[in-house]
Amino acid sequence: MANKADTIISTLITRSRKPLLDEWLARQATMAGSGAIAADGDVKEYCTRFLAELDTGLAAGEVGDIRGAGWSGMRELLEEVSRSRAGKGFTPSETASFVFSLKAPLFALVQREAGDNAARLADELQSATTLLDTLGLYTVEVFQKAREEVIARQQEEMLELSTPVVRLWEGIVAVPLIGTLDSNRTQVVMENLLQEIVSAGAQIAIIDITGVPTVDTLVAQHLLKTVSAARLMGADCIISGIRPQIAQTIVHLGVDLSVTSKASMSGALELALKRIGKAVVERKARPAAEVS
């Protein structure tokens, strides 16, 4: 039964590919959000290839299961369309409508072919709908995956960007933390900091949390881990940049930071210099007699 129906769709596509293509393109141009789709210059090429691949796939005789070898070309095409549209910022429905918009022109053709034979028409439409739905869903799936890849890549980039370790003075390093601290970031911060402590031979590490929006028990625990690790290496830690609200939150949560902390980075630097036996002093003005 299914095979009989397929033969007819595939003959249709082989025979009237040109009118079908024109109808389909016209249809996509008039659809909602057509501005964006019209801007997609490759639409005509994609449609032509889609019909060709549809032909190939149907000829291979596998309907309903697009994972077969006969559909490999089609899958590649849909992946290409999805990725290019995901990259251009299309919505998922705009992307899926690429496939779904073929339904109307195809069904019209099928109807004309089937004539008065209602049972046959129903069969035809049934199998055509199933096939196009599967292809459409596959497109959305790939689209989603492409978007997820973009998000994952951005997260990785953020991780690398946001953890610089700076040398403030001989023997003093500082990490300005920006953004929320989760386990992954703590790991990266800790590794970078410890590495820098070794290479700089630093005795003091200042962790500045001015850029950390909130400190809850988990963040505090991560901070303490970093401090402990630095201490094991032989470097003392000072936490700086604690904003008034954060100080209140820390006490309300009952977190015991038990680490030297300073309100500002300058205070921390002053303390650090003192600990390594250095001081910043004002230069003495020379007496007037000496100047002349």
Partner: peptide, 17 residues
């Protein structure tokens, strides 16, 4: 003296400060 970074991280993860 001279603890390696990897060793320090391991000890902290083990809860041994």
């Amino acid at each position: 003296v001279g603890m390696q970074p990897a060793v320090a991280i391991t000890l902290v993860e083990l809860g041994l400060t």
